[in-house]
């Protein structure tokens, strides 16, 4: 279900947020690359859910515990607080009901790690302003009619939603177009303009 085709600069950030030996569920785990990274570097007890059968089969062939499933409909099968972290990397914008999914993440996990492309990035704004068309970029190469990304949001939108569901932001990282972290002391508005991707560590 993960739909970003570029190298995953968010993976290292996510890995840095996970404690060694933790129980981790990766929702939308793709071909299992992040889970494998977490197993190898953090020795986590990792599980995955992935929508595409191809991704599932590749993950299982890597020796990962991954099942086919949909973030929107299948998270309800997981028990409360069964995991230390539930990860949703580059998948939130492709869910039908992001708010519900986020609520479920924090029911299943003590903490949730969410990474997403920031639609408030200045290039997105400039593209829409100048061209008058839905932005198509290297990182998000889909046209409006065939994109799996049906619920784009900006960093500011996301921060609002965390408040609505009563989630606490424990750590937030924004990455610029070069995959570098943006200074932590900058205000949200600055992040929202220059952060191409965001990674949030949330708790209940």
């Amino acid at each position: 279900m993960s739909v970003n085709t570029t190298p995953r600069v968010d993976f290292d950030v996510i890995a840095s947020l996970v404690n060694p030996g933790a129980r981790v569920l990766d929702v939308g785990c793709g071909d299992g690359e992040l889970l494998e990274l977490l197993q190898n570097t953090k020795n986590v007890d990792g599980r995955g859910v992935e929508l595409s059968q191809k991704g599932v089969n590749e993950s299982v062939a890597r020796g990962l515990s991954v099942i086919q499933g949909d973030a929107d409909s299948d998270l309800k099968y997981y028990p409360d607080a069964g995991f230390d972290y539930v990860i949703l990397s580059q998948t939130l914008q492709a869910t039908r009901n992001p708010k519900n999914v986020l609520t479920e993440l924090l029911r299943i996990g003590e903490k949730a790690i969410v990474s997403f492309p920031n639609f408030g990035h200045w290039r997105m704004r400039a593209s829409l302003l100048v061209n008058g068309r839905m932005p198509v970029t290297e990182e998000l190469p889909y046209s409006w009619y065939d994109t799996p990304n049906i619920h784009f949001c900006t960093i500011s939108d996301f921060v609002d939603m965390t408040k609505e569901i009563g989630a606490q932001v424990e750590t937030a990282v924004a990455l610029n177009a070069f995959g570098q972290r943006i200074g932590f002391n900058m205000p949200w508005g600055f992040w929202n303009l220059f952060g191409q991707q965001a990674v949030f560590l949330l708790r209940r």
Binding site: D45, R47, Q53, V56, N57, S59, V60, L64, S65, V66, I67, Q68, Y77, Y78, P79, G82
Partner: peptide, 11 residues
Amino acid sequence: NAAGASVSFVE
């Protein structure tokens, strides 16, 4: 899943 077991499932 509900039992918290480790499971791989391929179709």
